[in-house]
């Protein structure tokens, strides 16, 4: 019997979609173990959201309010989670793996002396035991994990589960959290600066990854293919981190999210943070020398070969075909 505590997150005045994704896992686990679902809503002036969530999958909601919880603060949130676990008797805490979630969840796990499983894409309860699944090695391998302790905190990959759409019954209870002095102070959120390169308008994007090898090759190999297709050039994060291209070329969770008619990924392995930026493209071609690269799971068409051979030959053929 599991008491599952959902730790919710509020963004721009509403509950993030990820809360409902976590709710579907929590409801499944509770049903399979004959347990129950409870939730924690943290913030300032968020009682209405607590009420809403209790009816939409959250069950009994603990409402923790205070100035320190008005914005993301890992120290304060961790204290609220500990208080909610004590009040609910939860043995499994689920939290969306967002930038706030990954900052807070391991801290709360340590405060609870609990086991921690990071960024699960699936959690299943069967025959009394719970199994956690997550990707390791940047998506190249999949690990199945089990816990042997009385409390577990698990963060849940966003977008991996279908959001809960059913209803639930529950009450809202105020939770007193003694936050005390904090060494962490939220200052502000700075929105992304406007982009010099707007990839969202391009019909075709040719992106290069670490596999392109050198900054020169972006100009000699990737850009000419983009030009031949009248498209734009994009890149994965390591390319930007290394200073080969400026940040405005970056596609992915911390770059731009694009949806062109055609996305060509060259020398990109297909880590989840890259995929979330391009997987809804209309058509995806991947060129990678590793047949097991996860990029082939989202691509429509793939070529397993050296991009330095294929891409220039393709550029030449396209130029010739245009006449």
């Amino acid at each position: 019997m599991s008491t599952v505590l959902i730790v919710t997150e509020i963004q721009n005045g509403s509950l993030r979609e990820a809360c409902y994704e976590v709710a579907s896992l929590a409801q499944q686990i509770a049903a399979a173990t004959g347990g129950s679902v409870k939730s924690l809503v943290m913030g300032q002036g968020v009682a209405a959201l607590a009420d809403e969530f209790s009816k939409k999958g959250g069950g009994d909601v603990f409402l923790a309010e205070g100035d320190a919880l008005a914005n993301h603060n890992a120290e304060a949130e961790s204290k609220a989670i500990v208080a909610a676990v004590e009040a609910s008797g939860a043995d499994l805490v689920l939290i969306p793996s967002t930038p706030s979630g990954w900052d807070t969840a391991p801290r709360a796990a340590a405060a609870l002396d609990a086991g921690f499983v990071s960024e699960c894409f699936d959690i299943t309860a069967e025959g009394g035991s719970i199994t956690y699944k997550r990707r390791v090695f940047n998506g190249k391998l999949e690990a199945t994990i089990s816990a042997s302790c009385d409390k577990v905190v698990a963060s849940v990959q966003t977008g991996a589960t279908t959001p809960f759409e059913g209803s639930s019954e529950g009450s809202v209870r105020k939770l007193d959290v003694s936050i005390g002095d904090l060494g962490t102070k939220f200052v502000e959120v700075k929105q992304a600066e406007s982009k010099g390169v707007d990839l969202s308008k391009a019909d075709v994007i040719v992106s290069g990854g670490r596999g392109v090898g050198t900054p020169e090759k972006f100009l000699e190999v990737i850009q000419p293919l983009a030009d031949a297709l009248g498209g734009a050039m994009g890149a994965s994060r390591p390319v930007v981190d290394a200073g080969w291209l400026p940040h405005e070329y970056q596609v992915g969770s911390s770059g731009q999210v694009v949806q062109p008619k055609l996305y060509i990924a060259c020398g990109i392995s297909g880590a989840i943070q890259h995929l979330v930026g391009m997987k809804t493209s209309n058509y995806i071609i991947a060129i990678n020398k590793d047949p097991d690269a996860p990029i082939f799971e989202v691509a429509n068409l793939g070529v397993v070969a050296d991009l330095l051979e294929i891409v220039p030959a393709l550029t030449e053929a396209l130029t010739a075909a245009k006449g």
Binding site: A114, G115, F116, V117, Y132, R135, V136, G139, K140, L141, E142, A143, T144, I145, S146, A147, S148, C149, V152, I284, A286, P291, D292, P294, F296, E297, A299, N300, L301, G302, V303, V304, A305, E309, I310, A313, L314, A317
Partner: peptide, 29 residues
């Protein structure tokens, strides 16, 4: 250890890309 990896494996492949094979010229065509 409170948690441990029981198994590690390549991800289950769902729909993967259609792979073009052959010589460079064939692939490019």
């Amino acid at each position: 250890a409170k948690v441990k990896i029981d198994r590690i494996a390549p991800p289950l492949k769902g729909d993967t890309a259609e792979i073009l094979s052959g010589s460079t010229a064939e692939v490019v065509a």
